[in-house]
């Protein structure tokens, strides 16, 4: 299959790629752009390990072709923290033992990040529902939920303080 040229903005940087129209975004990210934070757990849109943000929405990047993301703004786990520090969510996952093997973690945090933009003050139920597209085999979710609620509280407190 002939390769095509696509341009995406990934974590704020413009990236040009050459790939077949059938290539999945997760493969382009991981194999061409060396963005290996998002993982592959199923390739069938069930596990959420590959979750990224596309134009401000949580998307399982095994569900879209790179061709479909042409011109889009893509954020991955690599785009959340800063070189000198962890994002609040990353920090809270560490503090509340919200991860074990770490394989689901990038997708989970990326999803949680968007969830908290959609709903900055979620209840436990809303968090559980909001991350139900992301599977974790290790933690039993209890500490993930705790981490996300703690991050929400801290982000809200920071916002209040700033106002």
């Amino acid at each position: 299959m002939a390769k095509q040229h696509y341009t995406l903005t990934v974590n704020g940087e413009q990236r040009d790629v050459l790939c077949e129209p059938r290539e999945l975004l997760i493969h382009t990210l991981r194999e061409q752009l060396d963005i290996t934070g998002p993982h592959v757990g199923c390739e069938t849109s069930h596990c959420g390990a590959c979750t990224v943000e596309i134009n401000g929405k949580s998307v399982k990047s095994c569900t879209v072709f790179t061709a479909q993301a042409n011109g889009a703004d893509v954020t991955t786990i690599e785009g959340l923290g800063s070189p000198d520090g962890l994002h609040v969510l990353q920090e809270k996952f560490r503090e509340h033992h919200g991860l074990q093997c770490g394989y689901c973690t990038p997708g989970m945090i990326t999803r949680a990040h968007r969830l908290l933009q959609e709903n900055p003050n979620p209840t436990e139920e809303e968090v559980r529902f909001g991350i139900a597209g992301n599977l974790c085999r290790c933690t039993g979710y209890q500490n993930i939920v705790k981490s996300i609620l703690a991050a929400a509280a801290e982000m809200n407190a920071a916002k209040e303080a700033a106002e």
């Binding site: 991981r30 996952f93 560490r94």
Partner: peptide, 21 residues
């Protein structure tokens, strides 16, 4: 004790076999 592994994993800096190139 908080886990020393987590700074890496939460930033997507784990090194799993499929990450090897």
């Amino acid at each position: 004790r908080k886990r020393v592994e987590d700074a890496r994993f939460t930033q997507g800096k784990g090194n799993y076999v499929d990450d090897i190139k």
